[in-house]
């Protein structure tokens, strides 16, 4: 195997090959973050479950009171929060992991997308774990769990593709500008309120809703995640394709932008 700086393939393709070769590193990073986060706590990994559970219960109780809909509304909120939590956590982690890892990147070769990809891996574990309290709440509130739940992997795929794409885009920016991490938290807050997570979709007036749902890519993605859980039915094609299409498009965009820029990262910071 000869490394030749003059004969590298397109960065995006080179990086995809490289991350496949380094899959052991992705697993080790996921493991490290999971273990290191909870190692010195009494309840350990249970926090992964308790933390979102507590947040979800508080928000669900508060907002079900505010919107006074039927008794199943907490499930609506929880399903939305699981999807949103995955998105906000993985995209933020991509940034922090990359910034924290640049010193490593300057010393030893590794595919720089490893930070974003392992953030997604970590998010997937958290998401699967938080499905446990979600189904418990469904049982308690008497929301039947339908077979449509088997559709969930497709919803998660759309969510994960979109999150990875956004994570790569924001972490590219964060390498150049330190305040992007802070700025992004503000963006996330605004973005969450523009997505029907804690309020019912039909709360917005129809004209406003039309525009927001058309322009906010998280809208169809969260919707696709919620339908098989909360509504207990298979999503229609018209509900499926926008989520998958926007997820794939943003993933490709993020991957290409990130890999075109990543050669410069070791020169930065």
């Amino acid at each position: 195997m000869v490394y030749d700086s003059a004969q590298l393939a397109t960065p995006a393709i080179e990086e995809a090959r490289s991350i496949l070769r380094y899959r052991a590193l992705v697993l080790q990073f996921v493991r490290r973050d999971l273990v290191a986060r909870y190692k010195r706590s009494i309840l350990g990994v249970t926090w992964t479950m308790l933390n979102p559970l507590a947040t979800m219960i508080i928000l669900s109780v508060v907002f079900s009171q505010i919107f006074k809909t039927d008794h199943t509304f907490p499930v609506y909120i929880m399903a939305g929060l699981v999807a949103w939590g995955f998105f906000s956590q993985t995209t933020s982690d991509s940034m922090y992991n990359l910034i924290g890892g640049v010193s490593l990147l300057q010393r030893i070769y590794m595919p720089p997308t490893v930070f974003a990809v392992s953030a997604i891996g970590n998010g997937l574990i958290n998401l699967l774990i938080s499905l446990i309290p979600l189904s418990l709440v469904m049982l308690v509130l008497g929301v039947p769990i339908h077979l449509s739940i088997l559709f969930l992997p497709v919803s998660i795929l759309a969510l994960a593709m979109f999150s990875l794409g956004v994570g790569l885009l924001v972490s590219t920016l964060a390498v150049y500008f330190r305040d992007v991490t802070a700025l992004y938290q503000v963006v996330l807050t605004a973005w969450m309120y523009l997505t029907p997570i804690i309020y019912p979709e039909n709360l917005l007036n129809p004209r406003f809703r039309f525009w927001v749902s058309a322009l906010n890519p998280m809208w169809p993605i969260v919707h696709l995640f919620r339908v098989p859980l909360y509504e207990g039915r298979l999503p229609s094609l018209a509900e499926i394709w926008p989520a998958l299409a926007v997820g794939l498009a943003v993933l490709i965009l993020g991957w290409v932008v990130f890999t075109l820029r990543s050669k410069e990262f070791p020169y930065r910071i």
Binding site: M1, Y3, D4, S5, A6, Q106, I108, Y109, K263, P266
Partner: peptide, 14 residues
Amino acid sequence: ARVLPPTEGRVLVR
């Protein structure tokens, strides 16, 4: 170590 790409020229490592 292939950490840094050259700005100009070529690097080969086996």
